[in-house]
Design a protein around this nucleic acid. Structure first.
Lengths: 151, 151
DNA sequence: CCAAAACCCATGCTATCCCATAAATATCCA
DNA sequence: TGGATATTTATGGGATAGCATGGGTTTTGG
């Protein structure tokens, strides 16, 4: 299972290309599909990034719903329908679609934020504000990690 | 197993031909039958699309109904009876039958929506409403992915 | 024999590939 | 240990191949 850590800021060139941090690529080296999957965050002006195999896992979970059920349909439409599949080029870059860049407010500096089995892509400037907010939430609400049986 | 994701909008020409997105075709490259299977959605003005091999899975699920039950009969009639098998031409296109196009309200722009192991074809304009609806449902009903025992 | 469907070829555009460079990191050996 | 050399990254830009699209031509089947 891929484990994404730390934050890396890379430049988006005029073709919309951006290097996926080498550390992240290493985590994906065993994947059947060499690239990433992105979709709009539901909570932030940012993009959520996953390994291809993670999407397969989601697909498997969706099979627990009845075929053609409204629930399966709604979830699949929002999760799969709105995601994009981006392959690495020879240098480990991906091309960010313009609509996704606009959604996340990414102008020139893209910040890759590792969040465990997923990561986020923020506009570098915007991320700073988010960081402050997250820290305040953790402190104010005394958030802690649940003791875990993993999935 | 094929995994369809993202949304691709392609044009339907005056012969009724439309390119199946290359990403989708890649997912079908291992299939014995090089093409897709389509039938009318039961819930939307849209078409449901599958890999040929997935029809066997549908068949298996139908066996969960009592043999000769009214439900099984109805589903089998609509799913298998009304489905069409469309082969790719040399350029990866299929010809959409006119009655299916009319059913889905497809005029010129056909939107292929990846939904995991299946996909849907919508009229591009109509799709936006569907998206909004799906998002609202997910939020209002608090739909989440069940922690998965795999199927 | 005719209409529809399958096949074949042409084209513009865009995404992908490929090479080059510079900076940062790692490696090696005295 | 330190300094020199090799790798790996990130980045840039030109060349190329693949995709979506259009139209013509042959084949098929009713």
């Amino acid at each position: 299972m891929a484990l994404f850590l730390s934050t890396h800021i890379n430049k988006v060139d005029k073709k919309g290309r951006v290097s996926v941090p080498a550390q992240f690529r290493d985590q994906l080296s065993a994947e059947a599909f060499q690239g990433i999957v992105l979709f709009r965050s539901h909570a932030h002006p940012a993009l959520e990034g996953f390994a291809w195999s993670y999407m397969e896992e989601i697909s498997r979970r969706l099979e627990n719903f009845d075929l053609f059920s409204a629930e399966q349909d709604d979830l699949a439409t929002t999760v799969f329908g709105e995601s994009v599949q981006l392959a690495f080029d020879g240098e480990g870059r991906v091309v960010l679609p313009v609509d996704l860049m606009r959604f996340a407010g990414v102008v020139e500096q893209a910040a890759f934020v590792g969040l465990g089995n997923k990561f986020q892509i923020w506009d570098a400037a915007e991320l700073e504000k988010r960081r402050t907010e997250a820290r305040r939430n953790v402190r104010d609400k005394n958030l802690t990690l649940p003791k875990g049986e993993a999935a």
